[in-house]
Design a binder for these strands. Structure first.
Lengths: 326, 326
DNA sequence: CTGTTAGCGCCTTCAG
DNA sequence: CTGAAGGCGCTAACAG
């Protein structure tokens, strides 16, 4: 029909025919091409699917996740693509929601090795990318070298320390909060957490501290309040730590609060490092790992759009501030 | 075909036929029903469209917007609906992206009276709701009574003051930052801003200050740094304000910084109020307007799903803290 | 510049 | 419990 051209290539239709179509459309209450029918016919939905953590609303609770999404949004807006966030709830039917999403490609926020979402996405045979990890055959991977970064920031955190400790993200999707010593990498199912712990381990061993002697405060969530509580516990141990490397600036902010409450001087009594170089890190003068989640989000979107090949590992750097020993 | 039943009503198919279908599917590389075709046939996409401000990435830069989105996410996750954020860029083709979105309903973050998006959505004849305003015939409206809330918090801000002032959101989508006196409501195209200014006006007039004598620092964006700069300018006026009502806690945080930099005591030299009761408000001890953007987001989602009628105006309250006079 | 044809993949309806 | 038919609304490709 000429009607289709009227909407899709107006120039291919005479002014007369076009206005006839348009007036008829108004009379019939026709509001333009139907998006689903168009997607079916074209074979493209012009939407990117985003899977954020174990519950959809997580996307809007973690400030780093928000930066990441903003990066995706920048690229989607330029490309005219919708950003479709999938309704993940943590229930067993999550994987079934992957194939029923009308999207051209997928972006997955870092998850655990055993997350069934990953297989479901792999089976879709559409462009897809994982942020942070795990690496999955057939899917792209965007992120920094977490082990190297943890090694580097851990070396700064633990410099001059005798009793280093770590405040960690959870080890698995069970999200058990606990205090342990020298986590075994095989028990750690979140690859980002695993790599960072391995990096901290290297840093500890370089100051001649055996990993099994390093206390690790494992938090169930990335949350300042929980980090504060677990730090208070660490500081009340018989041999309290004199350096703590945390996995986010959020957590580090909680560590700082607990240190202040316990009367510790920073960095002399307790050196502290964060991760991400968020606004709170510069406010608090935290030594931290700088990376751009926004740029990484944009990179993910380009891969999921099929616009770019999988990029090389993203850049990072250690930002030294007053929370560590010179 | 039996194949369709195999995926949609497995119980309606014998075990034998089902496994035959499933093995054939694997051999043919068939990954289950196609989402677009299913949407076309069913007449429903199981996705909600969200329009956030003038550029898609705005959604992830404003912390209040994040709360609002989290509320939408809660409801979408429960309903198994995707949340589709539309690629709005501020360009002239934004309105064209409304009809091409494959969604069952629309949620619009507060915008200006003259935003062409609104007409485009009205024309879609699908469930749709606007947060904050403007009110559009045929669309739902969710939000608080901004005028009443501004009147109430303004009364607290201006109590005992002689030279009240306001730090405001922009008046129109042109987003011009300026200092003016007693804005004319007719020039204010953002209804939320307009209503709040009217409320502050009432509060000023109740302490016998004519509105045209009240300086208004109009910021282009909701941003602490800009509020800080404009407050510095206000405080350097020949008759500097001794009370400032801001339109967000973000802005109020900037006002506080400028006040401290100018050596003003809070609240004695300068009373300050914010809006939203964000975390920063309790950190800074700000008097503010409490409202739940998260609950309002959820209410919007229920309306856009057609699950609920348009709710009554959302609750709010004034939270008094140390930033205002006794 | 305009008109026609032929499906995209699915699922509701009806018959076996 | 299984099979067949038909059409949702659209647009690529091909005539005229």
């Amino acid at each position: 029909m000429t009607a289709s051209y009227t909407y899709n290539r107006p120039s291919r239709v005479s002014d007369e025919a076009r206005s006839k179509v348009l007036t008829a459309a108004v009379q019939l209450g026709y509001g333009g091409p139907d998006a689903s029918a168009r997607s079916l016919r074209r074979g493209s939905t012009r939407a990117l699917g985003v899977v954020m953590g174990e519950h959809l609303s997580y996307a809007f609770e973690d400030p780093q996740a928000a930066s990441f999404l903003a990066g995706i949004a920048d690229v989607c807006a330029d490309a005219g693509y919708c950003m479709t966030i999938l309704p993940i709830t943590g229930a067993s039917d999550d994987a079934a929601r992957i194939p029923s999403a009308a999207v051209d490609g997928f972006i997955v926020w870092t998850t655990s090795d055993d997350d069934p979402i990953l297989q479901a996405i792999q089976a879709m045979k559409r462009p897809a990318v994982v942020h942070g990890g795990p690496a999955i055959p057939g899917l792209g991977l965007v992120g920094i070298d977490n082990r190297a970064a943890a090694h580097a920031v851990g070396a700064v955190a633990f410099a001059g320390a005798e009793r280093p400790a770590v405040v960690s993200f959870p080890l698995s999707r069970a999200r058990i909060g606990t205090i342990m010593h020298g986590a075994d990498a095989r028990d750690v199912l979140f690859p980002v957490t695993r790599e960072r712990l391995e990096g901290y381990r290297q840093a500890a061993e370089e100051i001649d501290i055996a990993w099994h002697r390093v206390p690790i405060g494992v938090c169930a969530h990335n949350d300042a309040a929980e980090a504060e509580r677990i730090t208070a516990t660490l500081l009340s141990l018989p041999e309290p730590p004199d350096a703590i490397a945390a996995m986010s600036d959020e957590q580090a902010a909680g560590v700082v609060r607990a240190a202040v409450a316990a009367g510790r001087a920073i960095p002399d009594d307790l050196a502290i490092t964060g991760w991400d170089d968020a606004a709170t890190a510069s406010h608090l003068g935290l030594t931290t790992v700088a990376q751009s989640l926004r740029e990484q989000g944009a990179a993910c979107a380009r891969v999921a759009l099929g616009e770019a090949p999988n990029p090389p590992a993203a850049p990072w750097s250690v930002v030294r501030r007053g929370s560590t020993r010179h």
